[in-house]
Amino acid sequence: MQLSAKEKKRLKTKYGDWAIVTGATSGIGLELATQLANADFNLILNSRHLEKLKSVQYNLKFKNNIQIKIVDADISEPSGVEKIIQAAQNLGVGLLINNAGVGTSGLFVDASLHSEINMLRLNCETVLSLTHYFSQKFKQQQRGGIIFLSSLVAFQGVPYAANYAATKAYIQSFAEALSVELKPFNVVMCWQRLQDPSKAVSVNGLI
């Protein structure tokens, strides 16, 4: 999707020069990173896969005159979150896209506890940590935006995806509350509820 010159100007004026996208090498994260690059945002891109990050960096810089910093890190771990925060130091970051996440399915009693805890950390704790840090930054600069990836499963318990649905319920509730708390500081909260994870989304439709 190509944004108009007017829309590009609106986004840059409202949010500044830099955006962060977690889980940026595939799916929705890659699509949003591509749209932001087309809107002339400089980018901090995160993934666990260094070679894929390098490929995305090359392709986006080849097509757009922008700066891109890559952060290859597992952000389900606090050290990975800290790497993103460090990469953003002294940059005019105005957008945070909390895209990285995983899902599991099947009987909860048969699931790997390690996998379920890791999902909880990535889908919830990581989002909490990044949102807390950057919402403070955005409050101070009196502008910013945070995008969350919710789901239609956030609204009820879902058998055979019990923990995953619970993580999305957390995201939904968290984003809705923060949209009220941070509105006086000109910080925009957006949450996309997707039933089909492969569905493309539009940056200007969100923010």
Rank of each mutant, 00 (worst) to 15 (best):
V201L: 09
V102T: 14
Y164T: 04
S79L: 10
G103S: 15
E125T: 05
H114F: 09
M119R: 05
G145P: 04
F174Q: 02
S135P: 06
I146S: 04
S112P: 01
T25H: 00
A19Y: 03
N98S: 02
L182Y: 10
G92N: 15
S202C: 07
G80C: 01
Q67G: 04
N64F: 06
K83L: 11
V158G: 06
Q140W: 03
I28W: 00
G106D: 08
L50P: 00
S198P: 01
G157E: 07
H49N: 15
L128A: 13
A19M: 03
S135F: 09
I44C: 07
L107W: 08
V153H: 02
Q141K: 11
G29N: 02
G106C: 08
Q192K: 13
E31P: 00
Y164C: 03
T104D: 09
N65D: 14
V203M: 03
Q142S: 15
K61F: 02
D17F: 00
H114P: 00
Y58R: 12
V187F: 13
Q141C: 10
F134Q: 01
Q136F: 08
K61S: 09
A87S: 10
Q57C: 05
V81I: 15
F148Q: 11
D17V: 09
Y58I: 11
G205S: 11
N46H: 07
